[in-house]
């Protein structure tokens, strides 16, 4: 279901804002040069600086180095496509579209989680706009009852985008908000219910338990017959593109707590290259589904490995 259509210009634009960024470096580094130990070391450095992770960077460098030693390639221009295809290979062919509820078992429930400040609420506004533009009715649930004014923040988006919202009491039980939201979505015949949760550090086990509980409440409130995928149909983990190696830990712990079905890579419009998704993909079998490339609700793109890698290396 290709619901997110669009070009990758935005993504490319986002990724190439700084000429000093990695992309330019990797490209300039290789093209027109003869391979040498030194050049390969520089390549490794450039990859590390794109946050793909030390191990991945070393591995990629070693692969190129092996090809060079075997005499298969001798110039940077030959290494360049090899490197690109190797990076793309980290993202196998898989379904990267949103999972929807089977016909008759609506609403579709999307649970959005992540650490503090990852960009959950803004990402939700983006999802919300896209779905709404497809004439789907959307209901938002403000389950972040902890952070000051988080409910208000989501409410502002709901008003701007013209969708309904279920709110809880500040300091109340987020699972209770999820409970109410499920009931409301069902009785109103809403197509998609999106749950916003409080930012939580993955190291706070009691907060991770709380997230699991929200999930359980949703599962219980919206039961489906045997064999039909139940709610939540989509659990999106929002990861900040500037995140370093810690992103892998985040993904692991969140996945264990609530079966993450996709990653929303937010804030890719800065100078960070978002290489962390390569490291996450290496460690976990979770597809990257969307990328956020700006502050407005329209700034969202479906994730496409080729474009992502291409953009990672694009010149400004």
């Amino acid at each position: 279901m290709a619901i997110f259509k669009g070009t990758f210009d935005k993504l490319r634009r986002g990724l190439s804002k700084t000429s000093s960024g990695t992309g330019g470096t990797i490209r300039n580094l290789l093209l027109g040069k003869t391979l040498s130990k030194e050049l390969l070391r520089d390549l490794e450095k450039a990859l590390v600086q794109a946050d793909v992770g030390v191990k991945t960077a070393i591995e990629l460098r070693k692969d190129i180095e092996a090809m060079w030693e075997r005499g298969e390639i001798s110039t940077g221009d030959e290494a360049w496509p090899m490197l690109k295809s190797q990076l793309v290979a980290y993202f196998p062919d898989e379904d990267r579209t949103l999972n929807f509820a089977a016909h008759g078992s609506e609403p579709t429930v999307i649970l959005v989680c992540g650490i503090n400040g990852a960009g959950k609420t803004t990402s939700i506004a983006k999802l919300c706009k896209t779905l709404r533009d497809q004439d789907k009715t959307v209901l938002l649930a403000a389950c972040d009852t902890f952070r000051a004014a988080a409910v208000e923040q989501l409410t502002v988006w709901a008003t701007r985008l013209g969708v309904d919202i279920v709110r809880g009491q500040q300091g109340g039980d987020p699972a209770a908000v999820a409970f109410d939201a499920c009931k409301a979505a069902k009785s109103r015949g809403t197509d998609v219910l999106i749950l916003d949760t409080a930012g939580r550090l993955h190291t706070q086990s009691h907060l991770m338990d709380q997230l699991s509980k929200i999930r359980r409440v949703v599962e219980k409130q919206l039961p489906t017959p045997e064999g039909v995928p139940g709610a939540p149909h989509e659990v999106l983990l929002v990861i900040d593109a500037t995140t370093g190696t810690n992103g892998v830990n985040q993904a692991k712990v969140f996945a264990a707590a609530t079966d993450v079905t996709g990653i929303f890579l937010a804030k890719l419009d800065g100078s960070a290259r978002g290489g962390i998704v390569v490291a996450i993909r290496e460690a976990l079998n979770i597809p990257v589904k969307f990328v956020g490339v700006g502050e407005t609700p329209a700034d969202v793109e479906p994730f496409d490995p080729e474009s992502f890698v291409e953009a990672m290396f694009a010149e400004s």
């Binding site: 794109a50 946050d51 650490i115 400040g117 500037t242 370093g244 800065g270 100078s271 290489g275």
Partner: peptide, 12 residues
Amino acid sequence: LDAMTGQDAVNS
């Protein structure tokens, strides 16, 4: 600055 920031921390 977020302590979890990666290599881009120095750029910003």
